[in-house]
Design a protein around this nucleic acid. Sequence first.
DNA 1: TCTGGGGTCCTAGGACCC
DNA 2: TCTGGGGTCCTAGGACCC
Length: 434
Amino acid sequence: MSDTDPLTPRRRIALVDVNNCYVSCERLFDPTLEGRPVVVLSNNDGCVVARSAEAKALGIQMGDPWFKLAAQAPAWGLEYRSSNYELYGDLSRRVMELLARYSAWQETYSIDEAFLGLRGTTAELTARARDIRAAVLKHVGLPVSVGIASSKTLAKLANHGAKRTPALGGVANLDAYTPDQVTRILESLPTDEVWGVAGRTKKRLTELGIHTIADLRGADPGLIRKKFSVVMQRTVYELRGIDCLPLEPPSPTREQIMFSRSFATPVSTRAEMERVLSVYAQRAAGRLRKQHSVAREMTCFASTSPYDPTHPHESAAGGASFPIPTDDPVEMVKAATAALMPRIREGARYVRAGVMLAGIRPAGADTPLDVFVPLHDQRGLGRLVDDVGRKFGSASIGLGLAGVKGAPIWSMKRERLSKRATTHWDELALVHAR
DNA sequence: TCTGGGGTCCTAGGACCC
DNA sequence: TCTGGGGTCCTAGGACCC
């Protein structure tokens, strides 16, 4: 049956996402956080990446550095947590499994969002969305919002509406509104509230006299394509309710792999930077092996703080390519060192470094002649490291400078890390009995 | 003192090929 | 005087997302 069959309701798209995801995950295992302002911080306890409604009400913004908030936190009663990705990832997986019961078309878009394809009348779909909310709350314990519309872009907007208007009870179905009502809603929203438009594009749209989402919807698609790109043109169509973005599960293998971190303490010696690079290259190679891929190119970088007014911002970058794509940690470490170390200045205060891998393809896709295979590949060193790490923990093995000693001074700061309550037996939540 | 860490897609332009 | 045209592949950089 086709979408035009009068007896078959047209497909609609629902966007389900977890409200204030990381904060909600923290509250699940620490109910004392309920009703209070809470933020979750980025790696290294650097800046705010999630805020409870109460924290938003205090004016705290996404990306605010923690050190600027810390002094006022006690007066505000503001609680903070270091990010616990293992916990969030596990809870996310449970939510996604539950959502799969509601639709055969599911696209997990991020750790806290999924698109679902649904068919039914407007009233049926609104009711189904309420079921979904109740089920996720009951079985996983997390609050979600649901937006329903005829395209992904509109479903996103509906979802924002569901969040902003408490009276909607967490569900907004755009089909329940008249065209005039929808127009009035879109007229009240600036262009950067739409998915795919941020600061730069908003500014350029303003110069063209396009101020609201309604203006963008009414713009000439050909002109938009010429001035911007095919992506923005699709946004115009999507706003008109024409579904242009396929609902497909994204590829399970990444096309680019990056391992990068800010340091708890700056790294200012070449010797220390060499250790950092060695560890990061091995971590990147590990991720590569985990998805059974090999890489052809590597880029490494290190940079000083862009916020330090007393020193100019410095960055170093260097690349390497592997004529025979590889996942071998020894080769990766060697390449990273050769690419970046000549550009590292003794005494510069580096605050961040990273290793990126590109030109990624499935391992074993093209088998090179034996004589071209580096010796380390033949020894299967990468797989050995992976096996040992899996059995005894990732800190138990490392090559060369990665060493196996305790955490070096530059490793991540996580002062308020909650327990990994759902994935580690020794970190289960404790329920006190009276 | 202290400001995240991943990713994606698109476009333009150059090299190279026939 | 007039000096092809189309295709692929690759890279760098921009913009955006969560």
